[in-house]
């Protein structure tokens, strides 16, 4: 086995990609970098502000310590309201998302029109951010937690409805057929043949969405829809940073706990 033999018998060059593939790959890289760069340069950004950003950030942090713990009592009440908004919003979602999901699932909808309506509701609900929904509901119901609850529900319907509709589309058709064969009505088929199969998915996504909703409900107050956000917004606007830090700590605690609870419950369900 000398080197000469290698040379005569085996190729000495091997390329992972051919020239064309390599070119395409680099074109992708370049394209992505170009888009990002073009985006940044097109945006109307005053870069000078970034120069002293760290100074500003440090200044802000400094003003936030020590937290003003005397404000904590007020914060507790607002945090409870925040959790209520998230929870009640999620419950309301459950009631609405379910029928919409049946419309939006191909195998349970009535006709193409109801299907399209169901799909549109899901897409519209998901496209509009909770805070934007809150803007709308504040205009309708006035400022306060009711607007917040509806905002949470309006956004969550799309999320839960989509996952539920997907679960319905994946159910075991045999079960449904067997129940239809007994002469059951449409409602009975739904109740007995389909609901039990999608329930686990609904439980799981509900708990998951609840956890997301806690986070969302912390900012609803920025547009007047109740919860801790109202206090947070006013303290920020009045530059009372030591209250702000108390609220941030409270939010951190509640969000982390809700995430742990949600993870625990989901583990138990599945």
């Amino acid at each position: 086995m000398t080197v000469d033999q290698h040379k005569s018998r085996y190729p000495e060059v091997w390329r992972r990609f051919g020239p064309r593939e390599t070119l395409i790959r680099y074109a992708w890289y370049l394209g992505i970098v170009f888009i990002a760069a073009a985006s940044l340069s097109t945006l109307d950004i005053t870069w000078v502000y970034l120069l002293d950003a760290h100074v500003q950030a440090y200044d802000l942090l400094e003003r936030m310590v020590p937290p003003d713990w005397s404000y904590f009592d007020v914060v507790v009440g607002a945090m409870i309201e925040t959790v209520h908004i998230a929870t009640l919003g999620t419950v309301a979602t459950l009631l609405i998302a379910f029928p919409v999901a049946f419309l939006a699932a191909r195998n349970t909808t009535f006709n193409w029109f109801t299907w399209a309506v169901g799909r549109f509701i899901l897409v519209a609900s998901r496209s509009i951010n909770t805070v934007v929904w809150a803007l709308i509901f504040v205009a309708i119901f006035g400022p306060g937690p009711v607007a917040g609850i509806w905002a949470i529900a309006a956004r969550s319907i799309g999320f839960m409805g989509k996952l539920t509709a997907e679960a319905i589309e994946e159910i075991d058709e045999g079960t449904v057929e067997a129940i239809e064969a007994t002469g059951a009505s449409r409602l009975q088929v739904l109740w007995i043949g389909i609901l039990p199969q999608v329930l686990p998915v609904i439980y799981g996504t509900t708990v998951y969405r609840w956890d997301i909703n806690i986070r969302e409900s912390t900012v609803l107050g920025f547009v007047g829809a109740g919860g801790i956000g109202i206090l947070l917004y006013s303290s920020i606007n009045q530059f009372i940073w030591q209250q702000v830090s108390v609220m941030l700590i409270a939010i951190f605690g509640v969000v982390v706990v809700s995430e742990l609870v949600s993870a625990m419950v989901r583990k138990k369900i599945t």
């Binding site: 502000y49 802000l60 920025f222």
Partner: peptide, 12 residues
């Protein structure tokens, strides 16, 4: 809201 406080209003 914090970034607005730090770098001002706008896209940045």
């Amino acid at each position: 809201i914090f970034f607005v406080k730090i770098v001002g209003f706008g896209a940045l």
